[in-house]
Simulated scan of single mutants.
Amino acid sequence: MEVYVISLKNLEQEELQNLLFHQLSMDEQVYLEKWKSPKKRLTILGGRLLLRHVARLHGLTSYHLEYGENGKPFFSNSSDHFFNISHSGEYLSLAWSSKDIGIDLEQIRKEMPKFPERMLSATDFSYFQKQREDQKKACFFTLWTRKESFIKLYGNNIFQKAREISVTDGTNLLSVVNDPFAYFHTCQWKDYIISVCTLEKWAHLSVQYVTLQEIIP
């Protein structure tokens, strides 16, 4: 398992975006043009460029993407490589694995949601309440990113399923859940929390920052 991060600020110039757009495959260009929001288009462009870079690092120079029922992309021509993408603030992250995977990246914002009990299971909210006040913000985003990475692993909708999932036992964070089966890995990177949910038992979460010069051929 590997996690790569890029800054989308480096791609904000319109002239650069136009140049990079024409380096995408025809299928990728068609998919990108479906989105009207400049912010969404920037995120998709950054994701496609980072995916191409990481795929090449692993010997996958040609691939075709398809999308699952809930929009999760996957390689239709490879059963040995899996990825997932997340975006928050100025950064975009990509998790890569030999097994299916989900990732969530969240900036630790100044304010938490006003009603965290509406977003967490009763078990996880009990765990959250036990934390010191100065730890609650990081705790909330740790719980939330673990939930979202789990749901992204299995391709479900986060807002429909969040309160049904517990990533703690009320006292401790869980490193593994069994129904369905998955392993959790979480770290703080800058002022962001990154959580990965994977089927790899012995995975280690380390973050590799990728520069613009590396992803542009």
Score class of each variant (00 low, 15 high):
110 K>C: 04
110 K>F: 05
111 E>G: 01
111 E>L: 07
112 M>F: 11
112 M>K: 09
112 M>Q: 10
112 M>P: 04
114 K>Y: 07
114 K>I: 05
114 K>M: 07
114 K>R: 14
115 F>K: 15
115 F>L: 12
115 F>T: 13
115 F>E: 14
115 F>P: 01
116 P>G: 08
116 P>R: 09
116 P>H: 10
117 E>N: 15
117 E>T: 08
117 E>F: 15
118 R>G: 06
118 R>H: 11
118 R>F: 12
118 R>N: 12
121 S>T: 03
121 S>I: 02
122 A>N: 10
122 A>L: 13
122 A>I: 12
122 A>F: 07
122 A>P: 05
123 T>Q: 12
123 T>Y: 06
123 T>K: 10
124 D>W: 08
124 D>S: 08
125 F>R: 03
125 F>W: 14
125 F>Y: 15
126 S>F: 09
126 S>P: 03
127 Y>I: 05
127 Y>R: 07
129 Q>M: 13
129 Q>D: 08
129 Q>K: 15
129 Q>N: 14
130 K>D: 08
130 K>H: 11
130 K>V: 01
131 Q>P: 08
131 Q>L: 13
131 Q>C: 08
133 E>M: 09
133 E>F: 13
133 E>I: 12
133 E>K: 14
133 E>A: 13
134 D>K: 09
134 D>Q: 11
134 D>W: 11
134 D>R: 11
135 Q>P: 02
135 Q>F: 11
136 K>N: 08
136 K>P: 06
137 K>W: 10
137 K>E: 11
137 K>H: 12
138 A>V: 14
138 A>N: 10
138 A>F: 10
139 C>P: 02
139 C>A: 13
140 F>I: 10
140 F>G: 03
141 F>G: 07
141 F>E: 05
142 T>Y: 10
142 T>F: 09
142 T>K: 13
143 L>I: 01
143 L>Y: 01
143 L>P: 00
143 L>T: 02
144 W>C: 06
144 W>K: 10
145 T>G: 09
146 R>E: 00
147 K>P: 03
147 K>V: 01
148 E>F: 01
149 S>W: 01
149 S>V: 00
149 S>Q: 01
149 S>E: 01
150 F>N: 00
151 I>M: 00
151 I>H: 00
152 K>P: 02
152 K>M: 09
153 L>C: 07
153 L>R: 04
153 L>V: 07
154 Y>R: 02
154 Y>N: 03
155 G>L: 04
155 G>W: 05
155 G>F: 04
155 G>C: 07
155 G>T: 12
156 N>T: 13
156 N>H: 12
157 N>Y: 07
157 N>Q: 14
157 N>K: 14
157 N>A: 13
158 I>S: 04
158 I>L: 12
158 I>P: 04
159 F>M: 13
160 Q>T: 06
160 Q>W: 03
160 Q>P: 03
161 K>P: 02
162 A>M: 15
163 R>T: 15
163 R>Y: 04
163 R>H: 05
163 R>K: 14
163 R>D: 05
163 R>V: 13
163 R>A: 10
164 E>A: 11
164 E>C: 06
165 I>V: 14
165 I>C: 01
166 S>R: 02
166 S>V: 04
166 S>A: 15
166 S>E: 08
166 S>D: 11
166 S>G: 03
166 S>K: 01
167 V>F: 02
167 V>H: 00
168 T>M: 00
168 T>P: 00
168 T>D: 01
168 T>A: 00
168 T>G: 00
